[in-house]
């Protein structure tokens, strides 16, 4: 899994059947600790929990797990948003990553 930021959306009417009805969001994989620096990896991912633009999300990046999350036995899908991250803690520091506030406690 990796942490990324939702930066946009993708529309596609002609697509593999198991993608119909699924929202496709663009997520930029974040680097750094806490993960907040943009990288040059931006992937289209399936969204199962209605994440919005600007949210920091947790993305599952493996086909078998993606299929079991979407409970679709043969979906050629590998990346699925599984959570919206509220905060990341490193050592005794707690970083809020959700939305745009970078609040350090």
């Amino acid at each position: 899994m990796f942490i990324g930021k939702v930066i946009g959306r993708v529309w596609a009417t002609q697509k593999t059947p198991s993608l119909t009805g699924k929202r496709l969001l663009l997520v930029n994989r974040l680097n750094g600790s806490p993960p907040s620096e943009t990288s040059d990896i931006t992937l289209a991912v399936c969204d199962k929990i209605d994440a919005g633009i600007g949210d920091t999300v947790l993305v599952m990046d493996e086909g078998g797990s993606a299929r079991s999350i979407l409970n679709l036995k043969n979906a050629p899908i590998r990346t699925v948003i599984v959570a919206i991250c509220d905060s990341v803690s490193i050592g005794n520091q707690n970083f809020y990553v959700s939305g745009t506030e970078r609040d350090q406690k």
Partner: peptide
Amino acid sequence: DASIAVHTNPPIDAAIIGIIDGVDFE
């Protein structure tokens, strides 16, 4: 996952699974 995209499950490592109509992002 590429081989799962094609119904005969051939031994392939990349498969097109959608045609992009539009993208919007910042």
